[in-house]
Design a binder for these strands. Structure first.
Lengths: 108, 108
DNA sequence: ATTTTGTGCTACTATATGGTTGCAAATATA
DNA sequence: TATATTTGCAACCATATAGTAGCACAAAAT
């Protein structure tokens, strides 16, 4: 099992999805984030580390505090994949349309 | 670590994403799918099992062959989450707009 | 009837993951 | 200066994951 670290891996965990949602409202410190969940500060820190690696999140040091900002652009990768998926689906239905078209012609 | 089995977990693995893409073109047997990848038949079967559990994929027995169909509707869950995310982002920018608006007013 | 083929299922392995605990470093506060 | 707070980091644990190999069973093909 190679260590993957992509956006899809990042959003696989429900806590990380929640953190992402939370950060849409603005930057927060690890402590503040942990306060919103049942997770411990360290657990949240680990999730933030993973999110940092995927560049979904960006650190900003401010004295002893670290503010975690969301990099919303990264989310576009998922959107892109979904778009690609939907396009392939459309192609398939076009093929199905062709089949139905041909059946219609035959019936004539 | 609880065993999660949701769509997000399902698309976390690149092989599974590839399988999903492959099945947009139509149903395939495990052997046929494995033929498209470097993965072994057993590995693909495991992925199909996971995809079945999330209802992304549906089995159709045909003699000794099993055809795996895509349930494209499940993918909408991801779309829905993304939509929710984007909506939250918009809200944040609206708040930012309000701040700027207020600053403008103050300057007057 | 025998062989081949397609598949699922059950170990088994190595590695990843999510989480906890404890410690150290840096900054803020008294 | 002494103490409290915020954080990262490393060690450790239990479980999940991805993959392999082998067996069993049913359906086709010979």
């Amino acid at each position: 099992m190679k260590t993957r670290r992509d956006v899809f891996q990042a959003i696989a965990d429900p806590t990380r999805r929640a953190i992402i949602m939370l950060l849409t409202a603005g930057a927060l410190t690890p402590n503040a984030i942990a306060g919103h969940f049942n997770s411990s500060r360290q657990a949240v820190s680990k999730h933030l580390h993973i999110l940092s690696e995927c560049e979904i999140v960006r650190q900003e040091q401010r004295g002893r505090e670290i503010h975690y900002h969301l990099n919303a652009d990264k989310m576009k990768e998922i959107e892109k994949w979904l778009e690609q998926f939907k396009q392939l689906l459309t192609k398939r239905f076009n093929q199905l349309d062709n089949v139905l078209e041909q059946l219609k012609l035959k019936r004539k």
